[in-house]
Design a protein around this nucleic acid. Sequence first.
DNA 1: ATGGTCATGTAACAGGTTACATGATTAT
DNA 2: ATAATCATGTAACCTGTTACATGACCAT
Lengths: 175, 175
Amino acid sequence: MSIQHALLTSLLEKPSSGYELANRFDHSIGYFWQATHQQIYRELGRMTEAGWLLVEHNPTGTGRRKKIYHVLDAGRQELARWVGDSGGPGRNDQALLIKLRAEAVMGPLGVDRELRRLVEQHQQRLQMYRDIEQRDFSNPTMSHAQKLQYAVLRMGIKTEENWLAWAKETLPLVE
Amino acid sequence: MSIQHALLTSLLEKPSSGYELANRFDHSIGYFWQATHQQIYRELGRMTEAGWLLVEHNPTGTGRRKKIYHVLDAGRQELARWVGDSGGPGRNDQALLIKLRAEAVMGPLGVDRELRRLVEQHQQRLQMYRDIEQRDFSNPTMSHAQKLQYAVLRMGIKTEENWLAWAKETLPLVE
DNA sequence: ATGGTCATGTAACAGGTTACATGATTAT
DNA sequence: ATAATCATGTAACCTGTTACATGACCAT
């Protein structure tokens, strides 16, 4: 989500061509989301129009067309704004990872506030799952169908617990 | 993903209206994906056209318009086909949860094969992350920026470990 | 009678996916 | 020479999101 800010972060780490961005599976960003080259070229075009990026045409000097994108100050400002902005409700987990990465490359931007906000959300969700667990799956004798349903709920519970454990070890890095 | 099969599963559990489907946050499905009512109405229409669903119009007999959807045999067959079908590469984790739920309501459909396939994928991915960890983050003295990058990678590692732990406790239920 | 919930839908738009297309450079 | 990789783009399509709209039923 917010592919633009992920691209800005990536370009701050290293000015690159669209092709290079599309093929990055190396560090941090890129484990979690993948974007097709069409998406990337589209967003690079838009961000250039918006004045966030500078294009360096034909850097090799040869006949091979290539564009290296550099982040301009307006782009840096937009990224800083976005990091400080609570994304409202919805799935901000992936966004948080990009924000951490942005903080790593741009310095302190206040990600801790968003981290704490998400911790609360995940705690609430975990509580909700545990309530359902109590209500529907506390009986020791379950049918096979019930066990399968329970397995699905357990995935949810474990995912939340895991996320919270990660947040606990990550919070000291940003506060 | 494959909202149609999620809806089929949900409708097998209980014939419902689009409105009811949109508001289901109770059991299992619906923790993980949420669909807007427009998506649901659109897909219900398509599945009805495809002959997978039967519509019961105006079941209350009053002036309130309502449509209850029932799964036809063609729909059941399609769901069974989909459960047995390895979804190729890509994000099939959510699909697996729906498949478990489908197995709970329709009986043995062979989800274990897909589970085992995903276990292998996750193991490989975990190994990849651990290799990166060794290569880039084994040095005990890390800069602050490196620690943040490492936190992002650790999220990936923990997510994979957690998924595999869940799979280990779930496999006995389907084999 | 007023507001909330039940219930379904249309329309416009934004974002993501797939197919197709082009051409330069590098390696065999 | 040929294939693989580098590098960018257009077009069509499908999915998802948001806004808008309508009307019945129910509780106060």
